Every structure is written in structure tokens, then in C-alpha cells.
Amino acid sequence: MAAVRIQAEPFDAAAETAALTAERGDIGAIVAFTGFCRDEGGRLSALELEHYPGMAEAEIARIAREAEARWPLLGLTVVHRFGLIRPGEPIVLVLAASAHRRAGFEAAEFMMDYLKTRAPFWKREHLTDGTVGAWVDAKGSDDEAAGRWG
């Protein structure tokens, strides 16, 4: 069963990996993706992420169960942050454990495509000039990538 957490605090990817693999001899691969906040060429001072507590966890858990049904995973961890996140800080972590690498790669990519396009988060840019931008829409290229999963 997948572990899904939404939290304000930074996470430790190495500690999350260690927890997923502790006392496990059946895992042959861990595919890890960590997404970070970018400074967008020096114009971004922070990214603000909001969500509906409870609803967001349930929806991400639902998609994680779909990943577990599609691929022979031995573990799946998804950690997503909310709040004000500065450039260089981690935003999201996906760990997909499997016996063989292909299932891990595909499941991790599936989860990230979902998180980028349909997860119930709202993002707003805080700019270095002190202004707060509008809420950010998903990119067309992200929607296109997610479309391949049917």
C-alpha cells in the first residue's frame, strides 16, 4: 500500500528511501524523482502551494492505487509539500519500488504526470520585485504527457 503525505516541512529523500527499503530483500529497483522549486531566471522568490486537506491526500492515494494496479510495485511513496517554497527547496518526492526497473520508471512517471496536471494543488508565484502573481495553470506539454496513460 502506498504511503502518501502532504506536508509543509521539507523531506529527506534518503531517509524516505531507507524507510521504504528497510529489511526488504525483494526490491531490485527504486526509481526516485525529486522536484525542486526553480527561480525562473531569477524572477521568482517563492512558489506558494495550496490544497484542500484530506481531499488532496485521498485523491493522490487513489491515483497511487491505480499505479499499484498497473505495475508490479513493491512499494510507492509520494510526498508533496504545500505552503511557501523557496527556489532550491524540494516540492515533491515520488519513490517507486519494484523487482525490476521498468515498472519503477513507468509508475514514477505516471505519478508525476498526474501530480503535474490533475492533483488538487493550486500554485501562485511570488516574484522578486515583491509582487504576487496569478495562480499558475498547468502547461499544455504536461497535459500532453499525462494523456498517454489513457
Rank of each mutant, 00 (worst) to 15 (best):
V94G: 00
R81M: 06
A58M: 13
A56M: 11
G83Q: 07
L95P: 03
R118C: 04
L84S: 07
R81P: 02
D113Q: 05
F105S: 01
R65L: 10
E40C: 12
E48V: 09
P72G: 07
V132E: 14
L47T: 03
S45E: 12
V79C: 04
L115H: 03
G83C: 15
H51M: 10
H80K: 05
I91Y: 01
E109C: 11
E40N: 14
R38P: 03
V78Q: 00
R102L: 14
M111R: 03
A107N: 03
R118Q: 08
M55E: 15
R124A: 05
E48T: 08
D129L: 12
A99W: 07
W71V: 02
G42Y: 15
M111I: 07
A97Q: 04
R124C: 10
F82H: 11
D39Y: 05
A96C: 06
I60G: 00
I91A: 05
V132L: 15
A107K: 01
L95H: 06
E59G: 15
G54C: 06
H100E: 10
E50I: 13
R62L: 13
T77W: 01
E40M: 07
G54H: 15
F82C: 10
R43F: 05
L84E: 09
M55P: 11
F121R: 00
G41T: 08
W122T: 13
G104L: 01
P72I: 12
V79Y: 00
V136A: 11
F82S: 15
I85A: 03
A108K: 00
G130Y: 11
A56L: 04
E106A: 05
E57Q: 14
W71A: 01
A119D: 04
M55N: 07
A46Y: 05
A103F: 02
H126F: 09
R124K: 15
I91G: 00
V78I: 07
V78T: 02
F105V: 02
I63T: 06
M55V: 15
F121A: 01
G88I: 12
T117W: 05
T128C: 13
V136Q: 06
R70L: 14
A103N: 04
F110V: 04
A69K: 08
W135H: 04
G83H: 13
